[in-house]
Design a binder for these strands. Structure first.
Length: 594
RNA sequence: GGAGGCGUGGUGUAGUGGCCUAACAUGCAGCCCUGUCAAGGCUGAGAUCGCGGGUUCGAAUCCCGUCGCUUCCGCCA
């Protein structure tokens, strides 16, 4: 029996309910207590004329006490029913009360819905988890993960667990290292993902694998990044990009339909090449719920006398613009704020043009000819009443600045409908990118991604041009997951490693097991890894993944409840052969616990 | 590593140079109250305004530094 089950038809039954005191209303005579558990609220009545001793006991009860109440389900008197409660037609007339535990006044109100300082919430996460918001998020997360398991199991996938103690591979994110007393001086690493393991499962012939996999990356936190997070990890043999996309599309359609009230914007999910996404949105994970696309207006200024534009164009830069419909009347303050947004993203400035029927007003109008301005506005079909906002710089900066501007405008103008989920695929990412600091090519995604056969001849001559068989699923501007078709022949994999500057010795040390396995009849295979935390966050309309993780760490990666990480004793360190530099012997925690 | 925002009773906020002896709501404590459900009424406790320094006759308020939280960039194969 729970606090959410009793209804009209239970009237007259004797029941026992257990739960927490949500609220107590002591009217002097009769006392009402709303008893709460995961399933709901039930009003308990303590009537001094029916059970005086029980009533007396109830007057000492406080919020969050844990009670067991024995009583009889009664119909509520006419006019006192509560339509806001599922159990609002009835109440339980208490005949017995047992206080299972008392409770201190909590540091924040369990029933409060307003935002509470997150540090306080994290320090007492078990109380935060008592609140409706997080309980609903946990239930949603469970339902989604369960549906993922069922969906894939029904299609012949098997769930395989892979180890958490593995070998460090210094590529990509920083590893969390784990020492062991058996091998003092050597370290395991926690997996950044089960990437190599799942590929080896394909070599093994377990052609459809999935796992709800915990991944660890020792990198700075973000609203959607935690040092440990969970992925739906998938790998399949004998497939192409489109097979993976279709599989995930089916799954995410089902999840969205079953577990949210959101309308899917477009099905099948639009597919954008990386190039197209960058051109149109300046971003490889565009929020497609609204337009405000980027337009290249460089052509209008090829002959311009305006130095800022002319010089940018002469040095391989570009001028791109966003047309903001109906916003010619942006205030000075709004324009300043938007300029600040683009500046923070690296732009030197933001050129604005308020298009009016008779003229176009702009702070830089005096530097430009009327023809240039007209060529620009007509080229992008700006109408009277529109605001045109432009950035001139090298392409990467333009993309970053206008993408930030676009997101800000979307928010500011309420263009992103929270009831819509706009999925899309972004594919054909570049295989490699040039790392200036290291003076070498590096994988943009993971080093095992295959490349398009038609681009293979560029591999040595123009590596930046080679497109990978790689795809990301994007939803409402969040990267929900990504994957690729892998190199299943050693020679191809070796070719990529060589480009990345690894010697045969390097690759043998780092990826020896995988490379060797490719020599033993590795089938063509590919896969994808979907971020579960991020997806649940989107489905739950939360702004951070901390709201969908039971015990998250804060932005610095600290666990405020358990107070981790923490120093350890010298004896423990001694077993591991580890000594700590004196300047690092700092006390992280000085909380006084009761 | 860099940039922005925030920091005032337990919680959420107001106060942006003197009217602050710091306000409001909620929570908490006590009293009153027999049909409430965000119960109501009365009374009360509770903050040296993150910390340190400075400017000023005077600082929650301005300046500098510092710490914490948070968002973003870098980073995240």
């Amino acid at each position: 029996m729970t606090c959410g089950t009793l209804r009209h038809e239970n009237i007259g039954e004797e029941v026992v309910l257990r739960g927490w005191v949500n609220r107590r209303r002591d009217l002097g005579g009769v006392i009402f207590i709303d008893l709460r558990d995961r399933y709901g609220l039930t009003q308990i009545v303590f009537n001094p004329e029916i059970a005086p001793a029980v009533h007396e006991a109830a007057s000492g009860v406080r919020a969050e006490y844990v009670l067991a109440v024995r009583g009889i389900v009664r119909e509520r008197p006419e006019g006192t029913r509560n339509p806001k409660l599922a159990t609002g037609d009835i109440e339980v007339e208490a005949h017995g009360l047992q206080v299972l535990n008392e409770a201190q006044t909590p540091p924040f109100e369990i029933t409060q819905t307003a935002d509470i300082d997150e540090s306080v919430r994290l320090r007492h996460r078990y109380l935060d988890l008592r609140r409706k918001r997080l309980q609903e998020n946990m239930v949603l997360r469970h339902a989604i993960v369960r549906a993922m398991r069922e969906h894939l199991s029904d299609r012949g996938f098997i769930e395989v667990e892979t180890p958490t103690l593995i070998k460090s591979t210094p590529e990509g994110a920083r590893d969390f290292l784990v020492p062991s007393s058996s091998f003092a001086g050597n370290f395991y690493a926690l997996p950044q993902s089960p990437q190599q393991m799942k590929q080896l499962l394909m070599v093994a012939g377990l052609d459809r694998y999935f796992q709800i996999a915990r991944c660890f990356r020792d990198e700075p936190q973000r609203a959607d990044r935690q040092p440990e997070f969970t992925q739906l990890d998938i790998e399949m043999s004998f497939v192409q990009e489109s097979d993976l996309m279709r599989l995930m599309e089916d799954l995410y359609l089902e999840l969205t339909e079953r577990y949210s009230n959101k309308r899917i914007m477009t099905t099948p999910f639009p597919r954008l090449t990386y190039r197209e996404a960058m051109d149109r949105f300046g971003n490889d994970r565009p929020d497609l719920r609204f337009g405000l696309e980027l337009k290249d207006v460089s052509d209008a200024f090829l002959q311009t006398q305006f130095q800022a534009f002319a010089q940018t164009l002469a040095t391989g830069g570009q001028v791109k613009a966003i047309v903001v419909p109906g916003c010619a009347g942006f205030s000075r303050r709004e324009i300043d704020e938007l300029t600040e947004v683009t500046k923070r993203a690296g732009a030197r400035g933001l050129a604005t043009f308020a298009v009016e029927a008779s003229q176009t007003r702009s702070p830089i109008a005096k530097f430009l000819s009327e023809d240039e301005i007209a060529a620009m506005t007509s080229g992008i079909s700006a109408q009277p009443g529109d605001m045109v906002m432009a950035v001139a710089d090298e392409p990467a900066v333009v993309a970053r600045a206008l993408s930030a501007l676009r997101d800000n405008l979307g928010q500011r103008l309420n263009l992103a409908d929270p009831d819509v989920l706009a999925y899309c695929w972004v594919y054909e990412f570049p295989l490699l990118e040039w790392k200036n600091e290291e003076s070498r090519w590096d994988a943009t995604h993971n080093p095992f991604s295959g490349f398009l056969e038609e681009d293979a001849h560029f591999l040595e001559s123009d590596p930046g041009r080679v497109r990978a068989k790689q795809y990301d699923l994007v939803g409402n501007g969040h990267e929900l997951g990504g994957g690729s078709i892998r190199n299943h022949r050693r020679v191809d994999q070796q070719r990529v490693f060589t480009l990345m500057g690894y010697t045969a010795e390097d690759t043998n040390v780092r990826f020896g097991a995988l490379l060797e396995a490719l020599d033993y009849g590795a089938p063509p295979h590919g896969g994808i890894a979907m971020g579960i935390d991020r997806y649940v966050m989107v489905m739950a309309n939360e702004d951070t993944i901390r709201e969908v993780i039971a015990f998250p760490k804060n932005q610095r990666g600290l666990d405020l409840m358990f107070e981790a990480p923490d120093s350890v004793g010298l004896d423990q360190l001694g077993d591991l052969g580890i000594s700590i530099e004196p300047e690092l012997r700092v006390q992280l925690w000085n909380t006084e616990r009761q």
